[in-house]
Amino acid sequence: AGELTNARIRDIAVSADSSVWFATDNRLSQYTPSLNTWRTYGTPDGLLSPQINAVAASTTGDVWAGTDAGIARIEPNGNLTSFGLPAGLNTGRVNTLDTDARGNLWVGSPSGLARFNPETFEWQVFTTSNSPLADPLVKSIHVDAQTGDVWIGTGRGINRFESAVLPARKVLTGVQVYPNPFIPGRGDTEVVFNKLADGSQVSILTVDGLLVRQIRPDQNIAQKLSWDGRNASGQMVAGGIYLFVITAPDGNHRAGKIAVIK
């Protein structure tokens, strides 16, 4: 197995610099093809356990290792920082890892699922008691970068978590507005504004230019907003033609019309 210190490979990932990372029973090994060099990381380097169960590469350039005693982040410059798992999981063992489009780390353990934000160092824990997770034992995770969906393989089935975390969008191109016309009588419940630039807001106006409703994102990475057909007072609007104006943080606009049919 070349320069590997252990031939038993538990997981493999390829990082942004094309290095190949191998999770083994006693080390994390990095092979850089362009230099034909190997580097290993173990407990003397800061890992909380020598057994590496999972490895994942982030869009930020970081590489994450999941061990029997927590996680470790290896930055592009080689710096290694370890973190214990949150108390809500009641374990240190990591079974599986994946990262989403914004660099958040998803961690599967024998007692649940967790999401770690490496910018704020905040954890969010999902267990069978606070979520629809099919089983505490999380054996595999896959994040769909195109949809933001997180697929979770457990000991008793599959879960899909709609995280809505998508790659950053800075421009108002390819925006989708649907359904249009908006017909509550046929079961329509909201008008969706999709594929927005990060942090965009939507204004609904009458054809005379009077503001009906302003819709702002709950978080600045939101790329989808919706309007439930109500005005700022919570009342359903009358049937007719309404204008929408989408405003991106950089000041760019996109405008259009929505037909509301009663």
Rank of each mutant, 00 (worst) to 15 (best):
S109K: 10
A168N: 01
N231G: 05
E190S: 14
T206L: 08
V207Y: 06
V125N: 08
Q30H: 09
L113Q: 01
A232M: 12
L35P: 03
I258G: 04
F116G: 05
V143A: 13
L166M: 05
S58G: 06
G108I: 09
G157S: 03
D149V: 04
P184K: 07
P181G: 05
T96Y: 08
L211S: 06
S111H: 15
R39E: 11
A1K: 14
I241Q: 12
D135W: 08
R73I: 10
Q201C: 09
G84A: 12
L89E: 09
M236I: 12
P50N: 09
S15I: 05
T32Y: 00
Y31E: 02
V107I: 14
G256L: 09
P132E: 04
W106L: 12
R115D: 03
R254F: 11
L97Y: 05
W123H: 09
P184C: 14
I158P: 00
T67E: 00
G174A: 03
L97M: 13
V150S: 06
R213T: 05
R230N: 15
A145T: 15
I52Q: 04
A134H: 08
A54R: 00
T32D: 01
D144L: 06
Q223H: 02
D11F: 03
G153Q: 05
R102C: 01
D149K: 11
Q30M: 12
Q223K: 03
L35C: 07
F126Q: 11
T127Y: 06
W123K: 04
